[in-house]
Write a protein that binds this DNA or RNA. Structure first.
Lengths: 338, 338
DNA sequence: CTGTTAGCGCGTTCAA
DNA sequence: TTGAACGCGCTAACAG
């Protein structure tokens, strides 16, 4: 059903029908009612493509899902996606999702999205320190917001957890509990957040006069499998740590599993801390101490920010650093006396 | 950059440029090359909205993400989404995702997608026995494919795991291992697959002369939290089962956790079986016996089927029932002698 | 208050 | 082999 058909049925011009439906003031209440009624009855829904073409926008926001071949990604993305999607939906914007393998194909996907006018703006998640996706978007002048920061020449709109402070506080807390040999399972170093987490950890160590020990530092992908591999390495050696700080919950749960397999009691012999506070964290055995991040909320906020950006809000007003408070559960405790 | 601009630069008509770019035969090789070159140089990319409007299609497929408020969904969806997205991407189709709370809003979302001509076809996941979404799409004549079957008046295009056979075989195997008190944690009964799973389970029991005991049957949401709640109920009673068949891995992992908390040894005192074979299943402690489903592959296949459907392939040729083989790991064993 | 005209960017007749 | 003209469905400027 098109505008034209509705107009013909009513013996009116398309223009009038369009205006009546879009709440223009210059149309009589009588015809407006008539039009509304008729439109409702025949189930008229405007063609978004035509609207978009006319307005010169696509009324859609794009996002790329980095699919790691053969690997199960951590649940973080789904939560974020749901948060973004719900809010965008209520703002009457579409969400166009592309799934492409991580790597050069990603930038290409954004190109297709943007240059084909399929999206007015895009969202980027899991930012890298030097992020070609961001460079490209800045160069093209495409509005975008990111989940996570990046090192860029010009400022960008972002929302991010203050992982540095969170990791500093968590490390301080572990030190307070008597831990001295605190290991860090960090994220791949190309990710911006990896540096933040490590810096927070190092700051706390330094303040306590503990020197950073490279043997107590591992790097891995942000999923459970990564956690098991890294934990195996760190816990298998002879200078075993008494505490394990993990870049996210998925890793921490993997570490927990390895500890159990190796017969290391948590928290009696080993404290473990995660990040994200996924619902599973609370249900782990023992319940996981972690730093809380409201992922779905962040997604919703990201959607709002994208709308704001499209509405012309300045980038400087769209930068949010969120606290990630430490949630102490039962996977942490006093350092064992060894 | 538009077609018109390219044409002006070349002193040609838009028509010729369009034809040159779209591989029409009636254009001289010389001009074709010239046009291609120019288009490449200025980075011309066709406006998909305009293309779509002209063609009367949107070149996009829609899918609804049912977001359960406050609940963490199982990782199944992300895998499926990635599978769908990658394949659709390579077929040059967009994937439009809507996240809406489960319930009446879902059908509305499909309506908006379809009636607003935002999607040419849609994909439905986690089908219900009587599914209003499907009824609506059939009524509207919108092409769609589903992951999971449903009870419908007319046949539909679907891909589904043969959970009935899988659950029958798994139950048979447990019986073979000496189990008689086998409990089932099933999915919510409105889901089509719930009935399939229960039927397979019952068939095996009946064949072995074991009568179905309602006290050994629980129903819950398909996530970890559901698993812990149901397992607590089933394992807390006095007529404790020796084996637990779970509707999916998320539930099974929850059950595993409860067993550990209650001090019930797996598999010595209790066998546990899941469904899906998520990567985490293999890494559980003990590694989980489960039925394997290639989720990402199913996603890819769904995408192909949607393309086929749009291409006019008959529904009858687009119905696939996939085997879900039993993967025996260490969470199952001989029934304990009690 | 309402209708006519124009144009968003593209593909596709129909003539030349 | 090429171009002019038209229309997809819609909104907006400009009359009346």
């Amino acid at each position: 059903m098109t505008l034209k058909r509705v107009a013909e049925d009513l013996n009116l011009s398309v223009t009038t029908v369009s205006r009546a439906l879009n709440g223009y003031p210059d149309v009589s209440e009588a015809t407006r009612e008539k039009v509304r009624e008729a439109a409702r009855k025949v189930g008229y829904v405007p063609n978004r493509l035509a609207q978009a073409l006319q307005r010169g926008t696509s009324e859609a926001v794009g996002i790329i899902l980095p699919s790691q071949f053969g690997h199960f990604e951590d649940p973080f993305f789904l939560e974020l996606l749901v948060g973004i999607g719900e809010r965008l939906h209520s703002a009457n914007l579409d969400l166009v999702v592309c799934a492409v393998p991580e790597g050069p194909a990603e930038v290409d996907a954004y190109k297709r999205l943007v240059e084909g006018r399929r999206a007015d703006a895009v969202i980027i998640a899991r930012t890298r320190r030097h992020d070609e996706r961001i460079d490209y978007l800045i160069e093209q002048g495409v509005p975008f917001v990111t989940h996570g920061r990046a090192e860029t020449a010009t400022p960008i709109a972002f929302i991010d957890a203050d992982a540095r402070t969170a990791f500093r506080r968590a490390t301080e807390r572990l030190i307070e509990l008597g831990h001295r040999r605190i290991a860090l399972i960090g994220a791949p170093e190309e990710l911006f957040t990896a540096g933040e987490r490590k810096t927070g950890y190092e700051e706390a160590l330094r303040a306590a006069g503990i020197t950073f020990d490279p043997d107590l530092y591992a790097v891995t992908r942000l999923n459970e499998r990564g956690g098991t591999a890294a934990a195996e390495r760190l816990l298998g050696g002879d200078k075993r740590p008494t505490a394990l700080l993990c870049a996210n919950d998925a890793i921490a749960l993997g570490a927990l599993r390895i500890a159990r397999r190796l017969g290391i009691a948590v928290p009696d012999e080993l404290s473990i801390v995660g990040f994200d506070d996924l619902p599973m964290a609370a249900q782990a055995e023992p319940p996981l101490t972690t730093m809380r991040q409201d992922i779905r909320g962040a997604g919703a906020r990201l959607a709002e920010m994208v709308c704001a950006r499209l509405g012309g809000t300045a980038i400087a007003d769209l930068q949010e650093l969120l606290e990630a408070p430490l949630i102490e559960r039962e996977s942490t405790g006093l350092a064992s006396q060894t």
